[in-house]
Design a protein around this nucleic acid. Structure first.
Length: 278
DNA sequence: CCCCAGTCCTGCGGGC
DNA sequence: TGCCCGCAGGACTGGG
């Protein structure tokens, strides 16, 4: 479930590789069904090997590694992917590896238990084509309240469902959407088109506060323990969750009613019926 | 425009 | 005790 804070933590964690040269790159031996490597193994390898890493970046829920030839490696962790500089949790789920010219961190690894994630190697044009406007919305940490309202106000969708739409806004996933709406005291079923300007401001502020706070805590590691930073350490923001996965527990806002779980767009939403009125 | 169900995939936990 | 099933959800697709 890596969302913006977890992916940003991964990006920060791999900063030591900037300046290193990639000696060798490619898929690792792995007993599991192979993940997607785009455009294909041979081209990816040819575009990467021998290149120096010039920087790192993030777009929404993807980690970017920039190369001196202007190409970009894009790791998309989806549900269970990790970008690591340390030993991976298991060898059988290690999917892709960069061998680096560094003594301290000789490899950058992509590990993915379920294998729903991918590795893409894009030319500059391909990067904009696949991850540019129209394919991916503005980053959730790079919008203003006005832009946020502008993106969604014409939509009749419920706000919770709309926040998950990466084409509209990049970075927010299922966990943080519930947390943001609780902090903003907005009902998850409220339609975007019915939202007041004041509510957009509340959502904007809650979104900035929660995402930046979650980054400070290096993201959320849930009960399954899958998510880890680049050094294989768990995050700490799960201890700050107010509503996510807390069905039946007292609401930390009012302490009067219990948190409920509903399903929207086939995903769980957690909220407080008292604090989050329409 | 939007919604829904299905797809990919693995590990875990509930129920019998 | 052991096995089966359902569930978790990020991104995408096809049909309504």
């Amino acid at each position: 479930m890596p969302e913006l804070p977890e992916v940003e933590t991964m990006r920060r964690g791999i900063k030591p590789v900037v300046g290193a040269r990639i000696i060798k790159a490619g898929r690792t031996r792995c007993t599991r069904k192979p993940i997607t490597v785009w455009p294909n193994d041979r081209t990816a390898k040819r575009r990467i090997e021998g290149q120096q890493i010039t920087g790192t970046g993030r777009r929404g829920k993807r980690v970017l590694v920039h190369l001196e030839n202007e190409n970009t490696i894009v790791f998309e962790p989806r549900m269970t992917g990790l970008v690591l500089l340390s030993d991976p949790p298991t060898m059988e789920h290690l999917r892709f590896q960069l061998q680096l010219s560094l003594a301290k961190t000789p490899t950058l690894q992509y590990w993915d238990r379920r294998g729903l994630g991918s590795v893409h190697v894009f030319t500059p044009d391909e990067l904009e084509e696949h991850l540019g406007p129209g394919r991916l919305g503005p980053d959730a940490l790079a919008v203003t309240p006005e832009i946020l309202a502008e993106i969604f106000k014409g939509s009749r969708r419920p706000i919770k469902v709309a926040l998950l739409d990466q084409v509209a806004l990049a970075g927010v996933g299922n966990l943080y959407a519930s947390e943001i709406l609780f902090r903003a005291r907005v009902h998850p079923k409220k339609r975007c088109s019915a939202m007041s300007q004041q509510q957009w401001l509340l959502i904007y502020t809650a979104m900035q506060d929660i995402l930046t706070d979650a980054i400070k805590h290096e993201g959320s590691t849930l009960n399954d323990g899958t998510y880890r930073n680049a050094l294989n350490d768990p995050g700490g923001y799960q201890n700050q969750h107010q509503v996510y996965d807390r069905e039946g527990l007292p609401c930390p806002g009012c302490n009067e009613v219990l948190i409920v779980r509903i399903v929207q767009a086939q995903r769980s939403t957690f909220f407080c019926k008292k604090c989050q009125g329409y």
